[in-house]
Design a protein around this nucleic acid. Sequence first.
DNA 1: CGGAAAAATCTCGATTCCAGAATTAAGTTC
DNA 2: GAACTTAATTCTGGAATCGAGATTTTTCCG
Lengths: 310, 310
Amino acid sequence: MDLSSIEIFIAVANDRSVTKAAKAVGRVPSNVTTRIQQLEEDLGVSLFCRDGKKMTLTREGETFFAYANRLTALALEARQAVRPIAPSGTLRVGTMESTAASRLPAALSQFNQMWPDVSLSLTLGASRDLSRNVLAGVLDCAFIARPSKAMLEEEPDFDAELKMLEMEPIFVEDLVIVLPCGHPSIKSAADLHVGSLAALEPGCTYRKIAENWARKSSALQTTELGSYHAILASVATGNTVGVMPRSVLNLMHWPTSVQTHSLGPVETLLVYRKNDCPSVFNAFHEVLIATRGRDSRLSANWPASLSVQS
Amino acid sequence: MDLSSIEIFIAVANDRSVTKAAKAVGRVPSNVTTRIQQLEEDLGVSLFCRDGKKMTLTREGETFFAYANRLTALALEARQAVRPIAPSGTLRVGTMESTAASRLPAALSQFNQMWPDVSLSLTLGASRDLSRNVLAGVLDCAFIARPSKAMLEEEPDFDAELKMLEMEPIFVEDLVIVLPCGHPSIKSAADLHVGSLAALEPGCTYRKIAENWARKSSALQTTELGSYHAILASVATGNTVGVMPRSVLNLMHWPTSVQTHSLGPVETLLVYRKNDCPSVFNAFHEVLIATRGRDSRLSANWPASLSVQS
DNA sequence: CGGAAAAATCTCGATTCCAGAATTAAGTTC
DNA sequence: GAACTTAATTCTGGAATCGAGATTTTTCCG
């Protein structure tokens, strides 16, 4: 019995779906199916009822689920306990608005529970500024969106800064254009019937990706707003499209339905200074890995054809 | 992090030796070394101080050891908890004297703790009788010594009975001849300066192996005794050699030192009826697997050249 | 009765794992 | 202190496992 099998099991149990679980744990569905089958074989019971497409826990699955959570929690605690220098002081984390909303809460609260004496400071900002601040030592680490090759060529100094940092892909987001309710579905930016694109600050990578995509229709102005709620509200007026990760859209249960158009997967990178990992950062890193893919709010609605490509 | 790595770690921690731990978990030392190194790398700390040949736990190793035990205990509990039909009633276990003494106590008490309502009945006997009783349904399972090819050819009906049972190698014993203190060391049975071989009943496989080995010196009578203590006492008189697994010899800290001569490895088989595994047996089987290699009393003294060969 | 989506199965390349051989290091014996 | 023994580690090749993608099967929904 392998801890990774158990994490896969937890993901499937949370999402009731192997496809979504596969996304959550960064694997391919066939692999998830196989690992679950192996686990069932190993334990000698079936953990899920497969009625149709739904994967629901069996009676035994339920009881195993409880143990699975305890096991992973204990394993995480063990890792933390052997840390030779106990984390202390302050951890200064930088993050995009979107990551803060969707992916971090679980990890932050878990970390806070484990190390109540560490004070966590969270700085929100655009990818560009965040990485600069990590490099400058103002932040210990930051979550930023991986810029495309093209974007880095346009901004060589951003590229240079990133090269001086350690980068680690940690989440994958499906970046979408949010269309007003009733807008006909689109194949490209040329099909848009709106006047502007609502996005966050100029340094925001998602904004840049959307602007590059929108260039093809040329007539799109960018409206700068301060939050994803503001963007969605703006979209609701009917004359704007917004840009955001699907995970963010999904967790704000918006009253009116909206349409989306996927711009493809965008990796979220955790960046930190090379050769300069305070113990408190390492502790945070482990909590992050352990809580990744455990948040059932985040399961959802990826286009079938979506896969990560660099 | 893999549960098997943790079991390996526990074995090394108990035995303070990778060689002994390797025996205990049924692996090769190089493999144990590697797995420990991987574990240390994964956790980012060293778990053992290697001062010379001794492996002693570091400070972090100690704290991880505590978690390791909790983790394996929890994993075992999880396996048991998902058992669809709870074990109940009686489990009738047959065993050789030697296995009962050395390898079973840990498993039996663990099982008894987990399933206090199951009543365990233990029947001691020789391999030959035990397997017959399993086949007859008088016992649910039994621990017997694997007879050599030659022995099975001499007793075709024993062979036939075993073929009707499920057999699973579960321990490996180093079978030794115990020489009186002061007896010169021997290379073969011809070097013996004693009059008789002390052993248990005729159906005992170890006795047969020793008798086959002793044939070369031809002049050896077999004295039948009722227990390993009786055998050792008899050896102490000076005119007898005994036969027993080294594990048994090691755990009766005998006042006077004795010499030993290895007859090679002998596997202990767990036998049970095919297609007839009551839930209570499956539960016992899992406990057995989980507790195997956890008993530090059993580490010891294998000849360097010893390896299992069929 | 199609078409879409999800799970399962299959296949093949990549990785990992493990046994045994060779090597190194640390006691032991004389 | 040299020769021997024993234990740990490193190295290496074959075997087993793993995982991504393609294919197939099943189910859901129009």
